[in-house]
Amino acid sequence: MRSRSVPALATLVALAALTACGTTEDPAEDENTGSGSGSSAAPLTVTDARGKEITLDGPAVRVAGTEWNVVEYLVSLGIQPVGVSDVEGFETWDSSVQLDEGVTDIGTRGEPSMDTLATLDLDVVFATDEMVDGALEQIEENTPVIVVPGGDVADPLGTMWDNLDLVAQATGTEDRAAGMRDAFDEALADGRTALAEAGAEGANVAFADAYQAGEAVSIRPFGEGSLIGGVLAELGLTNAWSGVEGLEFDPVYGLGQTDVEGLTALPDDTAFWYIANDSEPDVFTEVLADNSVWNSLPFAADTVRFPDAIWMFGGPASMEQFIDAVVDAAS
């Protein structure tokens, strides 16, 4: 699986963030009193996405994250993780927060190294429900695990906040989480105002990424149920993918699958925006440069590539970066 791909999904092909909007300062003492390092803090119990109650000795301090969204939550909340899956990949695809030097790479996101985790003296491991069979159970043999959902098309933004709040409860950083929500709401309001002033309110927008496998080009539309789709809706924009007949989206991340010919179903007035990364070829400007179908599309010449390393499946910090990029693209 390529380093930037979302967790393995049976319905999708594996593939595929600017100054940080999050914070890496140490949390205030009253927000995080520690747990596994001899703290006298009272035990706390949280209920994770499985409905399972996990009791910790106190707010977790020594933590690891197996998926990049939970890593971003942690650092945004002022908790530097001891272990992170695929550190190089995280630093390539998510620029919203910065990891401390010396963080331990614990292996792949879907199947972290049990041996490495066992050496880190962790209070808890934060994971999503997108891991290989048996991995969670193996980790739990030595360390508590708190599971958050990878996403939910029914309420992508609500799921992001639920995830953040769960991580904040387990780390004693609820006040910081509340501040992040206030800052995000302000960013949304400012974004809506800027788009209205630019005359872009209600505009048709198609956001995507793409990759090449052999000779074939695959394009991933971000539907209404994606985290990106949720933010676009809050900004008052219209998701052009919703009008494409027959296009289906997975139930976790709200991602679809199409090809170049599929783009011909988009409205002529669509603003086509996409994410790429210099670590891979740019499909739209390099691979499709001489493609007659792509070049015939009315929006091809005005397509906008968003800044690299905005993690499309991240947390409030990444989504604030995305809001800034939307305003820039529409201005």
Rank of each mutant, 00 (worst) to 15 (best):
S3W: 01
V6W: 03
A8N: 14
T11N: 13
T11A: 14
L15R: 13
A20T: 12
D26Q: 15
A28P: 04
A28F: 01
D30R: 06
E31H: 05
S35N: 12
T47W: 13
D48A: 05
G51Y: 06
D57I: 08
G65I: 08
N69S: 11
S76Q: 11
S76G: 15
I79H: 03
V82N: 13
G83M: 09
V87R: 15
V87W: 10
T92M: 15
W93G: 07
S95M: 07
V97W: 15
Q98K: 11
Q98L: 11
E101S: 14
S113E: 04
D115G: 13
T116E: 12
T119Y: 10
L120T: 05
F126M: 11
A127C: 10
A127R: 13
D133H: 11
A135C: 08
Q138D: 02
G151C: 12
V153G: 13
M160K: 10
D162I: 01
D162H: 09
D165F: 15
L166F: 01
V167D: 01
V167L: 03
T173K: 12
D175V: 13
R181P: 07
R181N: 04
R181V: 11
L188R: 02
D190V: 09
G191Y: 04
R192M: 00
E197W: 12
G199K: 05
E201C: 14
N204E: 08
D209N: 15
R220S: 08
L227A: 04
L227F: 06
L227M: 05
I228N: 02
A233N: 01
A233G: 10
G236Q: 09
A240R: 07
W241N: 02
E245I: 00
F249V: 07
F249P: 06
V252S: 12
Y253H: 08
L255T: 04
G256A: 06
T258C: 12
D259A: 09
G262V: 06
L266N: 09
P267N: 06
D268I: 08
S279R: 11
F284D: 00
L288G: 11
D290G: 03
V293W: 06
S296F: 04
F299Y: 04
A300F: 08
R305C: 08
R305M: 11
R305T: 01
P316I: 14
S318M: 03
F322G: 12
